[in-house]
Nucleic acid binder design. Structure first.
Length: 254
DNA sequence: TCGGCTCACACTTTTGAACAGT
DNA sequence: AACTGTTCAAAAGTGTGAGCCG
């Protein structure tokens, strides 16, 4: 469920860490937020993170996953994310490098993604890391699904809010704590511009495995391979594949 | 002509329902 | 009856290239 609670005052809460070399954990009052997959984010950040946005909404990769400590155990909190423009420029790729292409387009409607567990007690938030895997990004300004609306070829970073509130509808009156991480800055694109990003994503994102070999040609190549694996039709070979698959998944289930 | 956007494609992974076993 | 584990089909999600559009 997504609730739009911000308007033009988004930047008032801006708490962007100043130094890119800052630690990946930030303290705010007595509570503290840590970026879980910080190393992965840093890998992408080092070559210039790009996030695909589509008309129907696309998940982020790497996705936002954080852990929180220092909350009051029995108090209810709502945890949200919104996207903040890094600067007021639009970018383009010129000879494999991002360059400023002019002034940014007017900001789309500012939306927030509320963590589906919200509201929950401090104990709940602190017992495990919080994944925003299902958050989707779109370039469709008329989007009705509550996805985060961004402009292509613009730079953003996710900003996390921990709000003391009993429901997503009462966050206006709660006390805000805002966190962000320098390595999560990304450029919104409708198609990847940097092949290094593509490679890194394919290496880490299981959904992209079918495209590992790259290009249309690879579709055929991959299809042939998968046919060879599947057509033997002996239940044993199928079972072996399943066993391998399940053994791969076991640590995750655990 | 060019750069950005959309769509179909063929694949993998995830999810959830149905079923069997304890 | 309740719980746990397994199987299977459907849904969701992925990057790419071709073609469209401004």
């Amino acid at each position: 469920m997504c609730v739009c609670i911000f308007s033009t005052d988004c930047k008032l809460n801006l708490n962007m860490p100043r130094s890119p070399s800052a630690a990946h954990s930030y303290q705010h009052g007595c509570s503290r937020m840590t970026l879980e997959n910080s190393d992965l984010w840093k890998s992408f950040h080092s070559i210039g993170t790009e996030m695909i946005i589509t008309k129907h909404g696309r998940r982020m990769f790497p996705h936002c996953s954080v852990s929180v400590t220092g909350l009051q155990p029995f108090t209810n909190y709502v945890i949200m994310v919104d996207m903040v423009p890094v600067d007021s420029f639009k970018y383009k790729v010129q000879s494999n490098q991002w360059e400023v292409a002019g002034k940014a387009e007017p900001q789309p409607p500012c939306r927030t993604y509320t963590h589906p567990d919200s509201p929950a007690t401090g104990t709940h938030w602190m017992k495990q890391s919080l994944s925003f895997l299902k958050m989707k990004l779109t370039n469709n300004t008329l989007d009705q699904h509550g996805h985060i609306i961004l402009h292509s070829m613009h730079r953003y970073y996710p900003r996390f809010h921990v709000v003391q509130a009993d429901s997503p509808y009462t966050v206006r009156w709660g006390s805000f704590q805002t966190f962000s991480f320098p390595e999560t800055v990304f450029t919104a694109v409708t198609a990847y511009q940097n092949p290094k990003i593509t490679k890194l994503k394919i290496d880490h994102n299981p959904f992209a495995k079918g495209f590992r070999e790259g290009g249309t040609h690879s579709h055929k190549t991959y299809f042939k391979v998968s046919c060879l694996q599947r057509t033997p039709s002996t239940s044993q070979s199928v079972q072996e594949q399943k066993n391998q698959a399940s053994s791969r998944q076991q640590p995750l289930k655990g």
